[in-house]
């Protein structure tokens, strides 16, 4: 069991007191599995992704990644989880603007001490980024930037890949290509993939699907 979430709750401070976002989420994910998180805006799917990725702290409940309860970790512990176990692809601003594409791709891997040059070279080639390695992110198109983000995430060979609308800013054709690559590479590294998406079409390409409504899982998992 790679990911085990039990009764996860989170609320944010709103103008009229605490605003509940997640109201008791339970879910599981194994290595090699792919899971789509769908739901309306504000249903809490991004928040769930953030909590699973160690990007934020839950109010209560348990998030176990690879057997470690990351809710009980301190800031440094959560940073280590992000560095070593998880890779995240956001909708935008994934990249470090001051570093070249090449450096961006290898950044997380090197940070975690898991740089595999051959794998990174292979990854760059397959992502079609070889000729862009010396460029800076701002010199690339949106689709290219997202490919860099995915390459960066997979370069560190994380056990858990999290993606928050990774193709939300891309046109359909580009989105499909990016999606294909992501699924292909995730399966190659035997990573689990958890993806937040609006798109029923993309959700349909994932192994399982969870629909969130008002902070709760709607219906039984498929």
């Amino acid at each position: 069991m790679l990911l085990n979430v039990t009764d996860l709750r989170k609320s944010y401070a709103g103008p009229d007191g605490a605003l509940p976002i997640l109201q008791g989420i339970d879910m599981m994910l194994n290595r090699g599995e792919t899971l789509a998180l769908t739901g309306e805006s504000g249903s809490g799917k991004s928040t769930l992704l953030h909590l699973v990725g160690g990007l934020d702290q839950p109010d209560s409940g348990v998030v176990e990644v690879d057997g470690v309860d990351i809710g009980a970790l301190d800031d440094a512990g959560r940073a280590a989880v992000r560095r070593d176990k998880v890779g995240v692809v956001f909708q935008q601003f994934n990249l470090i603007p001051s570093l070249t594409v090449g450096s961006n791709i290898s950044f997380q891997a090197r940070l975690g001490g898991r740089e595999d040059k051959a794998w990174i070279a292979d990854l760059s080639t397959r992502m079609g980024l070889r000729e862009h390695l010396a460029k800076y992110p701002e010199q690339l198109s949106g689709g290219q930037q997202q490919r860099v983000a995915i390459a960066r995430t997979l370069a560190a060979k994380p056990a858990l890949v999290l993606a928050d609308e990774p193709t939300g800013n891309l046109d359909e054709a580009t989105a499909d290509t990016v999606m294909d690559l992501m699924l292909e590479l995730a399966s190659e590294t035997n990573a689990a993939l958890l993806m937040v998406t609006h798109s029923q079409r993309l959700a349909g390409r994932m192994g399982r699907r969870l629909h969130l409504r008002a902070g709760r899982i709607d219906g039984s998992p498929t």
């Binding site: 990725g53 990007l55 800031d75 440094a76 940073a79 280590a80 989880v81 992000r82 560095r83 070593d84 995240v88 956001f90 601003f93 994934n94 990249l95 470090i96 603007p97 001051s98 950044f107 997380q108 940070l111 975690g112 960066r152």
Partner: peptide
């Protein structure tokens, strides 16, 4: 925006 990706990839604040 410059720091968030670094943070997300595993640096503490």
């Amino acid at each position: 925006p410059q720091l968030a990706p670094v943070w997300a990839q595993g640096l503490t604040r």
